[in-house]
Amino acid sequence: MLIGLLMLGGVAAGAFGSLLGLGGGLLIVPLLTFGFGLPLREAVGVSLICVIMTSSAAAGVYLERHVANLRLGMALELFTAIGALIGASIAFLLDERLLSLLFGGLLLYVAVTMARAREVEPTLISDDDESVDSSGLAPSTPVLTTLDRLSGPGYRVRNLGRGIVGSTGAGVVSALLGIGGGIIKVPVMHLSMGVPLRVATATSNMMIGITASASAIIYLIRGGIDPYVAGPTAIGVFLGATAGSRLAHRVNLRYLRILFVVVLVWTGIQMLLRALQVGS
């Protein structure tokens, strides 16, 4: 019975995250802490596993279709991994109430951002669409800078320094709170580094795997991952994310977004109350 409920919760978190492009991490931690009474740090460990699972499945497809920029992603992964190492190391030193405070603040920030965002139609990616090929560089073109090497067709990467700072920060936040960190990486790559949104999203998705793996290993060694909880939840999230990506074009995202904002606000307030030890 409890296994079924865990899987069902994972399906809901995975489907929600996939439909709204946020990943499941934001919902898994509150689900496990409020729904199943897990300590926050254990919930973060399980969430990291779920995040890797969904990232690997999606990034595999993105890489095969050459939508993600592997070179740029690997260059920035160096810094998300460093951030994850730092975050996972300090996560075990921080008071759970402080983690709740940070998580509550993050949920409310995302809720406000989503409430203010204009609806964007999802873009379908075609296998033979040359414009999304991140590797269409002419073999004989001379290299001038590192940025040229990291660029793709139709865009040139800029502000690598901001990308490095943003990636390191995303790694720290990911390891502390069990999220993928796409809410930091995608805007940094798209707005600061000049990477097209579609490529930024795919590349961020690919980077999430190594970021979460770097910290998940530390959680695992320090006893922060329970296999009996992680297994059913990860399978649920995988199924939910798979279903969500297939249903995306059939669902009215406007109402779903409103519902998601309400859920985020409620959960964020509960997290803040927990941090202040008010109520349950």
């Binding site: 690997s56 499945a57 990034a59 595999g60 497809v61 993105y62 890489l63 095969e64 279709r65 050459h66 993600a68 592997l70 070179r71 991140s134 590797s135 560089l137 795997g209």
Partner: peptide, 13 residues
């Protein structure tokens, strides 16, 4: 680059 991406993608899947 294409070979590295394809191999990496298949491994992940």
């Amino acid at each position: 680059t294409v070979a590295a991406e394809r191999l990496s993608g298949r491994l992940l899947i």
